[in-house]
Design a binder for these strands. Sequence first.
DNA 1: TTGATATCATTTGCATACGAATGAATTTGG
DNA 2: CCAAATTCATTCGTATGCAAATGATATCAA
Lengths: 153, 153
Amino acid sequence: MSGEDNLLKLVEAEEPDENDYRLQEQVGFILRKAHQRHVSIFAARIADLTPPQFAALAKLRDVGETSQNQLGTLIAMDAATVKGVIDRLKARGLVELSKHEVDKRRLLVNLTAEGRDAVERLIPLAREITQETLAPLSAKEIATFMKLLAKLA
Amino acid sequence: MSGEDNLLKLVEAEEPDENDYRLQEQVGFILRKAHQRHVSIFAARIADLTPPQFAALAKLRDVGETSQNQLGTLIAMDAATVKGVIDRLKARGLVELSKHEVDKRRLLVNLTAEGRDAVERLIPLAREITQETLAPLSAKEIATFMKLLAKLA
DNA sequence: TTGATATCATTTGCATACGAATGAATTTGG
DNA sequence: CCAAATTCATTCGTATGCAAATGATATCAA
């Protein structure tokens, strides 16, 4: 092997082939597909609610009445997005809105009785959705995956 | 401990506490957040193109001219979505459309010279985006994570 | 106290994302 | 060969998701 060959190999090893970019192997692309698959599984099991809508209801069940903005922070939605989600839940009678007595900027959100019933009814299905999403992995793999995924999120 | 206590424990063990559903630990919720983080990193490095738009360009670079539908399959977008993406790329002169000579249903998509230049220029940035997205993980963790994520997608 | 800042909510505009319906063209099966 | 099924593309409606601008209110600091 000549010295030039060694140099070439070295360069290739340090600077991965310019012509070789595999979209299918990029984490962003696979993350997008994995998310799509999960949403699809969700829709198959819970047809009348989207994952963000369910997230809002589940979080309200946890924390009780909160401001719209605070809820958005808790479920990772910006103000514009959370407004749309809450509007639709309100239109369906699953949440109710009220004004904060002291801080007049805040819009308080809470579950209605119907909303609470809905969450309680859906939580078992949500557990199944989680299971089905993770079904391609073994129990051990699931533990590893969830740990690493949490680091990325 | 009474027999009733034992029964209670057994039931709790089989049927995980009804009142204990933690949204923050569900794979779908974390997957959504990880995806959001990636999109945010992407936008910070490549301001004038979205991840789906870049995916279309990168895939066209790989496979050359294809039908709009086929491209959608390759980058995991349904027909309605891919149409919008291609329309916007076309409006910016990055791809060009033509009709398939034989099969008149098909709309062929290809990179323009400008589109090809853009992809080549952006691929190094895309590599950096992948790296930054995975930065919270060690090299070993990255290998593990990508293997498991691929199984889920 | 008041002027600068910060926070909360809303609105607009743009870009995925997908189900469902439609129309045109092709392929398949009898 | 021809009717049925399939494929490709488009359109419509609905739902995130985010940046940027705006207005109202609250907090902070000089």
